[in-house]
Simulated assay, not measured.
Amino acid sequence: MQGSKVLVVDDSTSVRKVLEKLLSSRGLVVTTSESAEQGLDAINHHAPNLVIADVVMPGMSGFELCQMLKTQASTQNIPVILISGIINESVVTQAQQAGAFDVVSKPFTPDDLFPKIERALNAAKQSNQARDEAVPVASQPSAPLPPITAPVSQPPAPPPPPPAPAVHTDPQPTPSSQALLNELQPFLDKPEIESVFVVGSGGQLLAWLGQTLDEPDLLATYIHTLLSISSVMGEKYHLSSVQSLNLEYLGKTVIVSRISDKASLVLLLRGTGGTGVIRYLVLKQMPQLKAVLSS
C-alpha cells in the first residue's frame, strides 16, 4: 500500500486536508482536487492508483466522475471509493451502477477507511497483473506475415446523406419502444417543446424525440443524478419521494416528471414561465406512459 498514488476529490477544504494527513501517515502519495472536473484533468495527466471522491459536489457528482472513469479504457481499472454523508440502499445502488469499488460514510474513521483502501489497491493490483499476463509474449512463434501487395485504388465514396430532423435511440424500434415513441409524440405538437425523452432508473436513455442534442446520453446521466440527489435530500428531511423538477435557464426550461420507479419524463422547452398547459399535458399522458413502460 505504501507509495501508492491516491487522488482525493472533494469540494470541502477541511475534508481534503483530513484525508491528505491520514493517507500520508500511511505512506500513500496524495494529491487533491476540489471538483470532479479538476479531478478528471489530474487523472488524465497522472493516473493515480486509487480515487477517493465525495458523492455530492457542485457540477459533476462523484457518481458521474466514477461512471466516466469506468467508460474509458485508460482509466476503467482505477478503483473509486465514494464518500457520502448518507449511506442507504439508494446510494449503494447508484454507487454499484457507477462502478464504484466501495462507499465510506462521512464522517469517517481510519478503521472504516483504511481496510477499504487496502482492498481496493490489492484488487487493482491483481486486475493489472491478470491483464498483463493475458498479453501474448513477443518471443512466441507467430504465423508468417502475408506478402505485401500494392494498394488498389478505390473510387471516392459518395457523400453521406443529410441527417434526419428527429432521432431516437433505437434505429429499429421494437413494438414496445415504438409504443413509447407514439406516446411522446403529442408533446412535440406543442411549439414550445423542443425535445422530449425518457430516462431509465439507471440513467440510461430509453427514448428520445425532437431537436438533436449534444451528448444526450450524458444529459440522461445528469438528470438521473439530479433525481438521485433530490431523493437523498427528501429522505434526509423526511419528505415524500420527489415527483418533479423544474429548472429554468436563460431562455430555456427543463421539466422532469417521474413516471414510475423505472423511468422519468424530461421536457426541454423554449423560454421560461407559462408551463401550466405543458404540465396539464404531462398529467394527461402519464397513464399511457406508465402503461407502456409496465408492459
Rank of each mutant, 00 (worst) to 15 (best):
M1F: 03
K5V: 04
V6A: 05
V6W: 01
D10H: 11
D10S: 14
V15D: 07
V18F: 08
V18M: 11
L22Q: 09
R26I: 01
V29M: 09
S33N: 02
G39R: 06
D41K: 15
A42H: 00
H45R: 10
H46P: 00
P48K: 06
V51A: 04
I52P: 01
V55L: 11
E64V: 10
C66A: 01
A73I: 14
G85H: 03
I87W: 04
N88I: 15
F101D: 11
V103T: 11
V103S: 02
V104A: 07
K106Y: 05
P110V: 03
D112A: 13
F114D: 01
P115M: 07
I117E: 05
R119M: 11
R119K: 14
R119C: 04
N122C: 01
A123P: 00
Q126I: 08
A130R: 14
E133A: 15
P136G: 09
V137I: 10
Q140L: 13
P141V: 03
S142E: 04
S142Y: 00
A143N: 05
P146D: 12
P146T: 06
P147K: 06
P147W: 03
I148H: 02
T149Q: 12
A150G: 09
Q154A: 10
P156A: 10
A157L: 14
P158N: 03
P158C: 04
P160M: 08
P161Y: 05
A164F: 05
T169L: 02
D170G: 00
P175A: 10
Q178E: 13
Q178G: 11
A179N: 07
A179C: 04
L184H: 05
Q185Y: 08
P186I: 11
E192H: 05
I193V: 15
S195H: 02
S195K: 04
G200S: 14
G200V: 04
S201H: 12
G202S: 08
L205W: 02
L206W: 06
W208I: 10
L209C: 03
G210K: 07
G210R: 06
Q211S: 08
Q211Y: 06
L213V: 02
D217K: 13
D217C: 03
H224W: 07
I229M: 13
S230G: 14
H238S: 06
S240Y: 03
Q243W: 01
L245V: 07
N246I: 14
L247N: 05
E248R: 09
Y249D: 00
K252V: 09
I255A: 11
S260K: 09
D261A: 10
L269D: 09
R270C: 02
G271T: 14
G276M: 05
V277H: 08
R279E: 15
Y280C: 06
V282A: 07
K284Q: 15
K284L: 14
Q285S: 14
Q288E: 14
L289D: 11
V292S: 05
